[in-house]
Every structure is written in structure tokens, then in C-alpha cells.
Design a protein around this nucleic acid. Sequence first.
DNA 1: TTTACTGTACCGTCTGGACGGTAATGTCAA
DNA 2: TTGACATTACCGTCCAGACGGTACAGTAAA
Lengths: 186, 186
Amino acid sequence: MSGNRPSSRSRILAAAAALARDAGPGKLSLDAVAGRAGVSKGGLLYHFPSKAALMTGLVEDYIAEFEANLDEAVTRDDSGEALMKAYVAMSLKSLDEKQPPASWIFSAMAEDPDFLDPFNDFRRKLLQRLLAGSADRTRTLLAYLAIEGMHSLKLFGADLLSGDDRDAIDAYLLSGSTETPASPEE
Amino acid sequence: MSGNRPSSRSRILAAAAALARDAGPGKLSLDAVAGRAGVSKGGLLYHFPSKAALMTGLVEDYIAEFEANLDEAVTRDDSGEALMKAYVAMSLKSLDEKQPPASWIFSAMAEDPDFLDPFNDFRRKLLQRLLAGSADRTRTLLAYLAIEGMHSLKLFGADLLSGDDRDAIDAYLLSGSTETPASPEE
DNA sequence: TTTACTGTACCGTCTGGACGGTAATGTCAA
DNA sequence: TTGACATTACCGTCCAGACGGTACAGTAAA
């Protein structure tokens, strides 16, 4: 779809994500995005011919970045173990950022829940890969859901976990599933 | 705030929740809610003088119902065990409903994320109660987060878990809390 | 008389989007 | 070499409609 990246397109996407994050998902209007991206509204609509296209771009961009990061973390050791490890590490890192990276997801839901279909498909595939390489299916499921839960809490602005609790969860998630009890890495 | 319940008020709230669920959170306009509730717009604004008041009502109503259900399930045996059991049972039951009960949460987020502050406070207190009565803190945290994760997935329309997987998670959540999941102790 | 509405009319603002430019760059035939 | 046209990448304006909210007159029951 996009062989080379024209700078404006990605700037618009970044502006939209930042706007949803900073001003709230309800403030994600075309005018506001255009203004923040330093582009006229006409210019925005040139790159994204409708608001729906903008939302789709946001979703696809998010998935692409997620996949790229995951691939980078896994490099070539695509055993289930390595994938899970990379996923957990990535997720915990993203949880440590001050602001949730995907606040635009609320705008997408309000606009049309179907916008999230590709995202949900992606998640389904990811979970399947995770489970395929897992020695303990229930444990992997549990870990996945716990991460999902933490992301959800963060997205909704609920800061429920104390540092100690977060540490306990981290320790559980980072500990190996069956094999070598995983001495502290990194 | 409401000693006795005038029927219209709760009808409006129910209509709003149903509308967000059926038509999508983006369609939650005052006109639409009034129409669905069988009330004129003036009547709606009589009960909820602003849209913000409506959202607040939605949140408060949700919390109140949640608490009532939980209290009912716990009855009087308020040991930590019983509370957790009731919470798990309630949550799993709500996950089995076809439609998520709180789709309006996206409208609230889009309108103003602060609307969820009371809800998050409530969740914080609940988690504290849950943890206070827990023999295995990490396990309780994990269970809470996994439930949160499943609710989040459902809210976002992601149907990722197979029946067997759901059964495995249910079994884990419903099993007594004395045993730690298969994790290497550190 | 108060409470709890209904119904209609209206207002200002915001929003998505259509549209008509336009400037720069490239393509290509005569 | 040059003129004609095409494409890309925007800008700025305008508009119809939706929205939240106000105002107010009326009504029917307690």
C-alpha cells in the first residue's frame, strides 16, 4: 500500500495519535488533527479521503509498528518461548510509558466498532502463535489476559496497582513457563 | 441523590446503555436516548440537565448495580475468600452475556475521561478488598487482571478465546486460591 | 400548587466532507 | 527546445447536518 513514506502521511498519523492521547479521544476531529500535523484540512483529506480512512490508517499503523517491534525483539529465534518472552517484555515496557500509546482506540470505537476488526484479527493470530509455542497453555492464556488487563486499566486511566504488585506480576510473567527457571537476563 | 426511583430516570439510563450497546457508543446522542426511552428531549433534560450529567448517571448506576450484585452474592460471609468467589462468579457470568453491558464506557471516555474517575476509584477499593482477604496476593492479582483482560477483550469486540480455553481459565479462576499456578518459586 | 413531565421552536457551534483553486514537478510529442 | 498536458501534494472556503442546550407554553396527576 505504501512503498515509500511521504512525510506528511506519517506526520498526520502521529498527530492524530498524539491528539487522542493529550486532548482526549473525543477531540479527534479532522480540523484538530490537521492543525496539529501542520497541514491544512484539505491536505489531510488528500492523504486520508475520509475520517474512516484516517481511523483505518491509525489501526494499520499501530499493528504494523507492533509487529515490527515484536519481530525485532524475536529476531530469528522464533520458538514459542522466545516469542512469548519478547511479547511480555514489549508489553511491560509499553505499560511503563506515562501515556497509553493507543488512546485513539476510543475514537475508533465511537466512530465504528468495526474499525477494530483488523486489530482483533491480529490479536487472535498473535495469541494463537503464543499458544502454539507454549508448553503450558493455561499459563500462557493467563499471562496474555493479565497483560491485556493491565493495558485495559491503563487505557481507562485506572492506576490500581502498587509498585510491589506490579513487580509481583512482572516476576510471574517473566519467569519461564516450564523449563529453566530463567535467571535474570538483560 | 435518589431516595425513590422515578421510573423515567431509570428508563433513560437503561435506554442510554442499550443504545450504546446496540447502535454503537458514537450514536449516544441526547435525541437518540430520549427517543429510545420514550421520553421527550425536554423530559430527558429535566432528569439529566446536561449530557455530562447523563454520563455521570450511567457510571454511578453501573457502580451501584455492581455493588448490589456483589453484596447479594456475598450475603453476609464477608471473608476474603467469599468475596473473591462472588466476584469471580459475577464476572464470569457477565462475560457469558451476548453483549457487553457497559459499552457506554467508550462514550464516556470520548466525552471526558474524567467521567471514569468514580468508576476507577470503585475498582481500586474493590481490588484492595479482594487483596486484603487473599491468602496468595499474586494469585489474586493475576485473577483480577485476567478477568479485567477478558472484559476488555469483550468490550472491544475481540472474541479470541475458544471454548476450551475459556473453560481452562474458568477452572483456574474458580479453583481455590491456596494453590499457586505452575510457576517456579523465586 | 407543585411535580413531572410533553412538545415545539430555536440557537450557536462543531464537524465531516465537497470543491475549486494552485504551485511544483514530470512526461512527452512536435 | 518547447509547448501541452498530467500528476502530486497540497490550501482555503463553504456548506448541510448533527449536536448540545435553552426557552417556554402547556398538561395532568398528587
